[in-house]
């Protein structure tokens, strides 16, 4: 078991009102799984992803990642987990503007205190893996949307994390580019990477092997396809 979540809650206090972004979520994810989280806007998908990604801490509940209890860790320990265990892909790419693709991909390795030469080699490998071996010196504004997201995927992969998280990774891409990014995820999953992605598009979700639905901060359905990704 890679991820084990129980009774996870995240409440926001907005003046008088208490917003229950997550209201008791139980979830288990096996290593090597390919999970899509669906649900309407505001149902708590991003909140859940941020908690899984250790970017945020829950109001209450238990979260065990890779046999380590994450709830209760301090800032520095969470930073360490984000660095070693997690690769995050965002809807808006979130690349550093003035840095080359290579420098962007090297970023997690810098914080892992990896020596420069090894860092560079590992980053080049990751860029090769996402098909951008010939674009390493380009800055984000010299790349297309799909290419930018590939750089972001390379950055998420480069530290060989236990889990790849993607919050609406195709939300800013056209459908053709979306398909390309999704087949990249498929490949990565076939190669053994655990993937959790958020989407509200059925076409995207069907790439995953398992889909859960959130509504008002609760899991309302959890379905698994028997076959392994039958492509249309």
């Amino acid at each position: 078991m890679l991820i084990s979540i129980s009774e996870l809650r995240k409440f926001y206090r907005m003046g008088e009102i208490e917003v229950r972004a997550l209201d008791g979520v139980d979830l288990e994810v096996d290593a090597g799984d390919y999970l899509a989280i669906m649900g309407p806007s505001g149902s708590g998908k991003s909140t859940l992803m941020n908690l899984i990604g250790c970017l945020d801490t829950p109001t209450s509940g238990e979260y065990i990642l890779n046999r380590q209890a994450v709830s209760g860790l301090d800032d520095t320990e969470l930073a360490h987990i984000r660095n070693r265990e997690i690769g995050f892909v965002f809807q808006t790419f979130n690349l550093l503007r003035r840095a080359t693709a290579l420098a962007n991909v090297e970023l997690p390795l810098i914080y892992a205190r990896m020596p420069a030469a090894k860092r560079r080699q590992q980053a080049l490998e990751a860029l090769d893996r996402v098909g951008l071996g010939d674009r390493v010196k380009h800055q984000p504004n010299e790349l297309s949307g799909g290419q930018r997201q590939r750089v972001a995927v390379a950055r998420a992969l480069v530290n060989r994390p236990s889990i790849l998280l993607a919050d609406e990774p195709t939300g800013n891409l056209d459908s053709k580019t979306s398909e390309e990014i999704m087949s990249l995820f498929d490949e990565l999953n076939s190669a053994g990477n655990t993937i959790v992605l958020v989407t509200h598009e059925k076409d995207i979700a069907k790439h995953a092997r398992r889909t859960i639905r959130l509504l008002d901060g609760r899991v309302v359905s959890d379905g698994r396809r028997d076959d392994s990704r039958a492509q249309p």
């Binding site: 800032d75 930073a79 360490h80 984000r82 660095n83 995050f88 979130n94 503007r97 914080y111």
Partner: peptide, 16 residues
């Protein structure tokens, strides 16, 4: 601010 967010997301500690 966003850059700081990105750095933290990929593992930068406060001290970094």
């Amino acid at each position: 601010t966003r850059e700081i967010g990105v750095r933290k997301a990929v593992g930068a500690r406060k001290s970094d």
